[in-house]
Simulated assay, not measured.
Amino acid sequence: MLDEVLLLQLGQVRQTWAKGQLKEAYDRYEVLLEEYPEHPTILREYGHALFMEYGDLEKSALLLERALEQEPDSIITLQCLCLLYSWGYGHGYAAAGPLYRRLIALAPTDKQICVNAYLGIGTMRGAPGCSLNPQESRDAFQMATEIDPEYVNAWLNLTTLCCELRDWPAAQIAATRAEALCRQQGHSTSYAQKLLDHINRQEPLKNRSYYNGTYLNFRWPNIPLE
């Protein structure tokens, strides 16, 4: 638990950040780290602030890695690091997969976390240092559709992978489901229709487009300070 003084200080820094006074906020985080150099909450808050603003993402990864050493089961820290690693920051691409799996193990009943984690795993195939094969990628996308059958990106990713594998019957099913969901949810159907065109012609995709989840589960700065 945070003591009252530090809780108040961190709350004030959050407010400063939320007002767009970023330099002031970061300077205040630096001051707090001088006094509490390995405090996990300060490290997490500072790293998360940089992450949310697309600031110094290498520094964000470093801060969050230090925070994770102190709090190995911090969901928000793991979520941020998964994305940073999947973009090549911090420990890099190869480190993303194990963290995504760790998230699933820590939050097996959280549908949004698990769906995004499986999408993240599936999209890592082909990244430098990652040994994921096409079937493992497909299995990850399939799991995402099973956990949340209403999530369009999961079906689009599964369709794209099936097209790449030239499994046209499975691709047809997934693309049809994706297009129907896009219509129901008011999204553009253009990518789903493009995939259906390729499937109907049984024509390999020239470029693959994958979606590795959303940021909707990052509710900071509304997450209570601990």
Score class of each variant (00 low, 15 high):
119 L>I: 00
126 G>R: 07
144 A>P: 00
161 L>E: 15
135 Q>E: 15
127 A>C: 05
158 L>N: 10
139 D>Y: 06
155 W>H: 15
163 C>Y: 05
133 N>R: 05
128 P>F: 12
146 E>D: 12
154 A>G: 14
142 Q>V: 02
124 M>H: 03
125 R>T: 00
138 R>Q: 12
148 D>H: 06
130 C>I: 11
159 T>W: 12
137 S>A: 15
166 R>Q: 15
131 S>D: 14
149 P>Y: 04
168 W>L: 02
153 N>M: 13
125 R>A: 13
134 P>M: 12
145 T>M: 09
127 A>L: 04
156 L>W: 05
132 L>M: 12
134 P>E: 15
167 D>A: 11
166 R>Y: 10
141 F>D: 01
154 A>Q: 06
161 L>D: 15
168 W>F: 09
163 C>G: 09
151 Y>P: 01
134 P>A: 14
153 N>R: 12
160 T>R: 08
159 T>E: 14
162 C>T: 03
123 T>N: 08
126 G>Q: 06
131 S>N: 08
150 E>F: 02
137 S>W: 04
159 T>H: 13
123 T>S: 14
133 N>K: 08
155 W>A: 07
164 E>F: 04
125 R>P: 00
155 W>S: 08
132 L>H: 03
166 R>F: 11
159 T>Q: 13
137 S>P: 03
131 S>V: 02
120 G>T: 07
125 R>G: 05
160 T>D: 14
165 L>N: 08
165 L>V: 00
143 M>P: 00
154 A>K: 04
160 T>G: 11
124 M>Q: 14
156 L>Q: 12
146 E>P: 00
143 M>F: 11
